[in-house]
């Protein structure tokens, strides 16, 4: 309720400030104009292709992050020595702007979705791996003892004890991983790409076409809000079922 009120207030303020010229039209156009632009952009075939490209890139990057990040987290937990050795590298990877490698990857792989997927996936992977490791570490030793005492097989141990116990703790990392996949994808597209929502926003930015640039930015915002809402709902469900 309060959130919607804040949002409405924000839109009204933007509308007023842009219309009265308090914010220069070169920086930002009014929400009503963005909406008008969206109405004409969204139905086009080109928008469909851009959106499809961006969404598939995000999903592929996130899937890679998940499929590699969770086993990596498990490995870092299972082999504490590896965890100790690798952790500084991973944390550095976390802190470093990976996008610096983008030009190199473009040169090697060419101007396609490959370099973007690679960067977005590596950004997505890190929080997932780190939270998986931390979550597994924080499981009470008694649960290991219990699993052992009932002669659980390794498979049963993971599926019936470890993952259910760790899931509520891993989930925030997974959520962060998804957000990083979105950021990575859109940012790389913005810098240089042949297609995609981020690419269009960057294209119009360089064309000084503020209205269309904001229309595409609005698409990214709406997309992020939607995804976040879905993930938050999923997280609540998991927590309710598991805690």
């Amino acid at each position: 309720m309060v959130r919607w009120a804040i949002l409405a207030a924000l839109i009204v303020i933007l509308e007023v400030t842009t219309r009265t010229g308090m914010i220069s039209p070169a920086l930002m156009v009014s929400p009503s104009e963005i909406l008008a632009r969206l109405v004409s952009i969204v139905p086009t075939e080109r928008f469909g292709q851009d959106a499809a490209r961006t969404l598939t890139t995000i999903l592929i990057a996130f899937t890679i992050g998940l499929v590699l990040g969770i086993p990596l987290g498990v490995f870092l937990w299972r082999v504490p020595a590896a965890g100790r050795i690798l952790e500084p590298f991973i944390v550095t990877g976390y802190a470093m702007p990976t996008l610096l490698f983008y030009p190199v990857l473009l040169a090697v792989m060419g101007l396609n979705a490959g370099p973007i997927i690679l960067i977005a996936a590596s950004m997505s992977l890190i929080p997932i791996a780190l939270t998986t490791m931390v979550a597994l570490k924080s499981i009470k030793p008694i649960l290991h003892k219990l699993a052992n005492s009932v002669s659980a097989s390794p498979r049963q141990y993971y599926l019936k004890v470890l993952f259910p116990a760790a899931t509520p703790l891993i989930f925030p990392g997974v959520k962060l991983g998804f957000i990083y996949a979105v950021i990575g994808t859109v940012a790389m597209e913005f810098i240089l790409a042949a297609q995609g929502i981020g690419f269009r926003a960057g294209f119009y930015y360089r064309e000084l076409n503020t209205a269309d640039m904001w229309a595409y930015i609005a698409v990214v915002i709406v997309l992020s809000v939607l995804v976040n809402a879905v993930l938050t709902r999923l997280e609540k469900r998991i927590r309710r079922d598991m805690l």
């Binding site: 219990l146 009932v150 004890v161």
Partner: peptide
């Protein structure tokens, strides 16, 4: 190793909280 015909009860709470 752990045997199928033995069962253990521990001092700490060993219930699985999601079940």
């Amino acid at each position: 190793g752990p045997r199928r015909d033995t069962a253990m009860v521990f001092q700490e709470d060993s219930t699985l909280h999601w079940r």
